[in-house]
């Protein structure tokens, strides 16, 4: 059985900052379940200028009681592959879990582009696929759990990114408010967030 999920959201921050925040997003107060994050490979394609990165992320898992017989160690390894094209202002990331794949495989693709309605904003398209190979009537339960958990995590991930972005904005505002430039009109005024 497979379940699909799709969501489009936006950040009121420039694409450059959003992709930068992507690298800085751990740790943040909404990601206490992330135990570690490592870069396995990283290179720039000399022909296209595209930055390609593979990271490994370790997350502390949480399972409902009925799932505890299925998985003893719930910690999950996630592989995250990404490409950043600075010329077209496109970042694509794909993550999937490496272990527990028979119980549930979650594959998520996110595409970060300049917002079509406001060039100072960023649009994020999220697509996910949740698959379970379990039988004995558990599949539906696992997948509903998976999709709910995934949506919770997605919301948390957006909050985490927003938190990092706000910190970057504050740092930039502080840097801009050094004595030499004090008195300049602030461009960092916040407006209601739109998701």
């Amino acid at each position: 059985m497979v379940k699909f999920y799709q969501h489009t959201s936006s950040f009121e921050h420039a694409w450059d900052n959003v992709t930068y925040a992507f690298w800085l997003r751990y740790p943040n107060p909404f990601a206490s379940h992330v135990l570690g994050c490592d870069v396995l490979d990283r290179s720039v394609d000399p022909a296209t200028g595209v930055l390609r990165t593979t990271r490994l992320i370790l997350k502390k898992g949480v399972l409902p009681r009925w799932g505890r017989n299925l998985i003893k160690n719930v910690d999950t390894y996630i592989i995250e592959e990404s490409v950043v094209d600075p010329r077209t202002h496109t970042m694509v990331t794909r993550t999937k879990n490496l272990n527990h794949v028979r119980v549930m495989q979650v594959e998520e693709t996110q595409t970060f582009t300049v917002h079509p309605e406001n060039s100072k904003w960023t649009q994020v398209k999220t697509e996910a696929r949740i698959i379970s190979e379990l039988r004995w009537g558990l599949t539906g339960r696992v997948e509903s759990f998976g999709i709910n958990k995934f949506m919770d995590n997605s919301a948390k991930a957006r909050k985490g990114m927003a938190h990092i972005l706000e910190r970057l904005r504050q740092n930039a505002a502080m840097a801009a408010a050094t004595p030499a430039t004090a008195g300049a009109p602030s461009s960092g005024s916040s407006s209601p967030s739109k998701e």
């Binding site: 450059d16 690298w23 994050c37 490592d38 870069v39 930055l51």
Partner: peptide
């Protein structure tokens, strides 16, 4: 900056992260 999955690698990892973050924002972009 986040920790490495291997505890003993966290220090060098964070050094690298610092270098990368600077490169990404100041050079690559």
């Amino acid at each position: 900056m986040s920790s490495s999955i291997g505890e003993k690698c966290t220090k060098i990892k964070q050094e690298y992260d610092g270098c990368f973050n600077n490169w990404y924002s100041e050079k690559f972009l």
